[in-house]
Design a protein around this nucleic acid. Structure first.
Length: 803
RNA sequence: GCCGAUGUGGUGGAAUGGCAGACACGCUUGACUCAAAAUCAAGUAACGAAAGUUGUGCGGGUUCAAGUCCCGCCAUCGGCACCA
């Protein structure tokens, strides 16, 4: 059979679509299986060879599940709002809607040419008003539950582009596009209170099957820490509360530091002696971008506040107060007690300002030379009633004491900040809020959703940092839904993360116009059984969508507390030179070229064979040929097929092992070794010179996961079964037939292989050793020595230890 | 600095503590061919004529046996980073 992939592949793609075999039905007597890939952003560059890696992997899982009798949902859609499209639209004076339409069409045809078993009848697009109606609806629910609020926030402002940048667009403190300086500008921003879910976002990780590194990264990002708040009084009679994770070191606090923005400064401005100096420092700190503030991390700066001191609540000692930008206003209380003996930053600051360093935890080196921060081994000293306790016990003891006396309390803090939800951009979901002079921020009635994006003349960001929508006076001016007075619409739009925070729910019921999805569909399909995506989405996308899902769970919209039961992640496909693929590096591989030259089956096979799925792998043009050759050899089997209705005895072990191993490897994402097993098996088959019909039938089903088009072709040409191999029954294996009758075992002397012998697989230790000792090669190494130990590992080796 | 990965032939990569290098690429030789391509067959870690020795980033250790386990380093990558 001549292998013409250009003929075969479109033929079967059309046949599958016509027969609708990949369409998922809500409700079925079969068990459900919902598998999901991260829906792509339809960029102008078209599909990248990285996309098919993930899509093919879960396609393999989806195909196997169908063959195992599951009702499978494997959907696809478009995460189409976003900056690149908007920028392209601005530059070329085309409406972003048109740009998106064109890009989606291109992506769609590219994806369809790979033969992924997506259910195209459930295709969604985040920029479709019928879709973003529900994104806006979710926002309204968040608003109604006080989880969306407006706040003055510093945003990134590019001085040259005169526009607001997302954090991702700021690289090393400069604008990603033009390279000019980015400064902070204060603007009123919509925020989502994700911090209210911080604890559950950590604890519910116990409910899901994610890789440990993903869980670790999420926990890291949320940054939960336990400690205490301690109330210090000041000599002016005010209270200065600090947060600390080391309340045990309270006796060692020799000064305090508050952030430059701390409100106490204004309050005491009349009492402070050096207000000019302090104002100058505040101004200096405010000018610095986040980038600069972290860059100068090594050298501590600060100013001592004159005229006010703090009083340590446990020993009544009076200590100075400083302001310094190493204390952040946004974390804890914006104030710290400094214990230089046991905190590296405090130690550096103390050295610079010549402040006393008092050791309160014994066990390290001289604290005058370096801070001792180890919590595990230290014993408290110089701490009155804490003396002699371990750090852990001292923490408990001091928190009890502080709680009793009302001077402190146990406290948990998070690094996680609320989600900045506003974008001053055109190409995003309008935020469905009306600002009324008398009623304030009023939510749009749900009946008025979707609030569609108006057509504007220009999508250019404005000079003043307002959204382009702000210029659309017709659209902006409206009536307050509550009191009817003249009011203005919110002109900010939502970030790209919004549409992708719930899209997996829409797939369950994509055409519903009365709910984001029907209760029936949600109950049936929830949760997503297996979600694969990139590590780059581990923190933001995963966290945001988990947050929204938990909220929807709390308001009884969705039936499960977690959206994804299992998450796996794929490694990146790198360029041939081992670097990240990018236009500027000139190492981009276009999947279309590969499909054109070798076919989609080869592309799929190669991307799965390229290496460990979870690790990054460099592209290698040479190895592609091996995969193409393998598929050709597979097609060639049809020519040597005999009528045999069984597996021949000499291949029985190999077949049963292959069924087992391919099945297991696929479940564990070990696609490369699964393919290696099939390659070995085909080598074994060719060694016999022929293949029976039954052998080819089984082999074709196994192959159909990786090379579905070629498999359908062999299936139909060889009349191996009815219908499509894509939905043929997955073969079973017999464990007892996975073992060979005779095996080769190694004969070791003192751990070194000296010979190899054939033995019966079930031979006992005595028998194996007898045969091993009969080996002349081994005997030469035993001669003249005394055997002190003999080891037999069944089916593997014997080891004779001789001295 | 903290968290998490990774380090194996010429290359991509395999190896529940049990024969290191499966499978594939490449290369060498042979068959077929007027010739080439394709295909098929054999070989292919290094050193050594051979017997054999040495080999999984480096240094130790545990074990009959270590790529795998333990201790201490080095390098590369990803994430976070003055979070008290």
């Amino acid at each position: 059979m001549k292998y013409d992939h250009k003929l075969i592949e479109p033929k079967w793609q059309k046949a599958w679509e016509d027969a609708g075999i990949f369409h998922a039905e809500t409700n079925s007597t079969k068990p459900k299986f919902y598998t999901l890939i991260e829906f792509p952003y339809p960029s102008g560059q078209g599909l990248h060879v990285g996309h098919p890696r993930s899509y093919t992997a879960l396609d393999i899982i989806a195909r196997k599940r169908r063959q195992q009798g599951y009702n499978v949902l494997y959907p696809i859609g478009w995460d189409a709002f976003g900056l690149p499209t908007e920028n392209f639209a601005i530059k070329n004076h085309i409406h972003p809607k048109e740009v998106t339409k064109k890009n989606v069409a291109r992506f769609k045809s590219q994806l369809q040419s790979i033969g992924i078993s997506f259910d195209w009848s459930r295709e969604i697009n985040t920029t479709d008003p019928a879709y973003y109606k529900w994104t806006q609806w979710i926002f309204l629910q968040l608003f109604k539950h006080d989880l969306a609020y407006k706040k003055e926030m510093a945003v990134n402002w590019c001085t040259s582009c005169k526009c607001v940048l997302a954090n991702e667009e700021v690289v090393n403190g400069v604008c990603e596009r033009c390279g000019s300086e980015v400064v902070r500008k204060v603007k009123s921003q919509w925020m989502l209170k994700i911090t209210a879910y911080a604890d559950r976002l950590i604890s519910d990780l116990d409910l899901v099957d994610y890789p440990d590194r993903v869980k670790a990264q999420q926990k890291n990002w949320i940054g939960r820490s336990t400690g205490a708040e301690v109330d210090f009084t000041t000599t002016t009679g005010d209270t200065l509360t600090v947060y600390t994770t080391r309340p045990d070191t309270l006796f060692g606090a020799t000064y305090m530091v508050i952030s430059p923005e701390h409100p106490l400064i204004e309050k005491l401005s009349g009492v402070i002696g050096n207000m000019d100096e302090i104002r100058a420092y505040q101004a200096e700190a405010a000018k610095k971008s986040d980038f600069e503030r972290t860059e100068v991390a090594k050298d501590k700066t600060g100013v001592r506040i004159d005229g006010v001191e703090a009083v340590n609540p446990v020993n009544g000692r009076q200590i100075p107060i400083f302001i310094s930008d190493y204390v952040l206003v946004s974390y804890g209380t914006g104030a710290i007690m400094a214990v230089p003996a046991h905190d590296t930053r405090d130690w550096e600051f103390a050295k610079k300002f010549d402040l006393p360093i008092i050791e309160v935890v014994k066990g390290g080196e001289d604290v005058q030379q370096a801070a001792f921060t180890d919590c595990a081994t230290g014993i408290l000293v110089n701490s009155d009633y804490l003396d002699g306790l371990s750090v852990e016990d001292a923490k408990k003891r001091i928190i009890d004491k502080l709680t009793e006396t009302g001077k402190g309390r146990a406290k948990v803090n998070f690094k996680l900040r609320d989600w900045v939800f506003s974008r001053q951009r055109y190409w995003g979901e309008p935020i469905p809020i009306v600002h009324c002079p008398c009623c304030g921020a009023v939510p749009l009635p749900e009946s008025e959703l979707p609030l569609e994006l108006p057509d504007v003349e220009s999508y250019e960001p404005t000079d003043n940092g307002e959204s382009p929508l702000a210029n659309m006076t017709d659209w902006v001016n409206t009536k307050c839904p509550k009191c009817g007075a003249a009011a203005k619409r919110e002109t900010d739009t939502m970030p790209q993360w919004a549409g992708s925070s719930w899209y997996f729910l829409r797939y369950m019921d994509p055409h519903n116009d009365t709910a984001l999805a029907s209760k029936e569909a949600l109950d049936y399909w929830s949760p997503v059984d297996w979600y694969n995506g990139g590590m780059e989405h581990t923190t933001l996308h995963l966290l945001y969508s988990r947050f929204w899902h938990k909220f929807l769970y709390d308001i009884n919209v969705v039936p499960t507390p977690e959206p994804y039961a299992k998450r796996t992640s794929h490694g990146m496909i790198l360029g041939e030179n081992g670097e990240k693929m990018s236009k500027s590096r000139g190492n981009v591989v276009n999947p279309d070229d590969i499909i054109n030259e070798y076919g989609a089956d080869t592309l799929r096979m190669f991307e799965m064979f390229i290496g460990d799925f979870e690790k990054a792998a460099p592209w290698n043009s040479n190895s592609i040929k091996g995969c193409r050759r393998f598929i050709e050899r597979f097609l060639g089997l049809a020519a040597v097929m005999t009528d045999g209705a069984a597996i021949r005895p000499e291949l029985e072990g190999a077949f049963h092992k292959a069924i087992k191993k391919v099945g297991e490897d696929v479940e564990n994402l070990k696609f490369n070794t699964a393919i290696a097993v099939l390659m070995s098996l085909i080598n074994d088959i060719y060694a016999t010179g022929s293949v029976t019909k039954e052998e080819l039938r089984i082999f074709t089903i196994l192959m159909s996961l990786f090379a579905p088009h070629a498999a359908e072709e062999v299936w139909s040409e060889g009349k191996l079964g009815s219908g499509f191999v894509s939905i043929a029954e997955w073969p079973t294996y017999d464990e007892s037939k996975c073992v060979e009758n005779t095996v080769e075992i190694a004969v070791q002397v003192n751990g070194k292989v000296r010979d190899k012998i054939m033995v019966a697989a079930d031979i006992d230790q005595e028998g194996a050793l007898a045969l091993a000792k009969a080996s002349a090669k081994a005997a030469a190494f035993i001669e003249g020595k005394t055997i002190v130990k003999e080891i037999y590992v069944k089916g593997k080796l014997v080891n004779i230890v001789a001295k």
